[in-house]
């Protein structure tokens, strides 16, 4: 869990006499963060597949696009810029959890540089 999550949980720890002490579920905060990344990627993949499926169905229903129209499409400058912005937001959403792990060293002295 992230430091913020631990702080949040701490608020009700006394009331529940809980073991929610902030230890990572997978034994390492990096692994926990990777699971979150995996989930966000999976979510975005489904978002895309669902939209594509609906889009193809809608276009077929309307009979507006011939086969290959999307594959051959060339975006103009405005659309390229918009896609770049969307890409930045896309990456930030998926990799959010990497930005939330502690900036404090854990297990000090175990890195090769410290040895």
């Amino acid at each position: 869990m992230t430091p913020d999550e631990v702080k949040d949980i701490q608020r009700w720890l006394d009331a529940s006499k809980g073991l929610a002490d902030g230890r990572p579920f997978l034994g390492d905060v990096r692994l926990d963060a990777l699971i979150d990344v995996l989930l966000e990627i999976s979510a975005q993949l489904w978002v895309l597949k669902r939209r594509n499926g609906l889009l193809e169905a809608a276009l077929a229903d309307a009979g507006v696009l011939p086969p290959g129209a999307v594959e051959d499409y060339r975006p103009d400058a405005d659309l390229k810029a918009a896609l770049q912005e969307q890409r930045a937001a896309f990456v930030a959403a998926i990799f959010r959890s990497f930005t939330e792990v502690s900036t404090e060293p854990d297990n000090p002295g175990t890195n090769k540089e410290d040895a």
Binding site: L39, S42, A43, Q44, W46, V47, R50, R51, L54
Partner: peptide
């Protein structure tokens, strides 16, 4: 939006 709906749809499936 459709994308928001799909994101939540994924979580429900998950």
């Amino acid at each position: 939006t459709l994308d928001d709906e799909s994101y939540l749809d994924f979580i429900e499936g998950m």
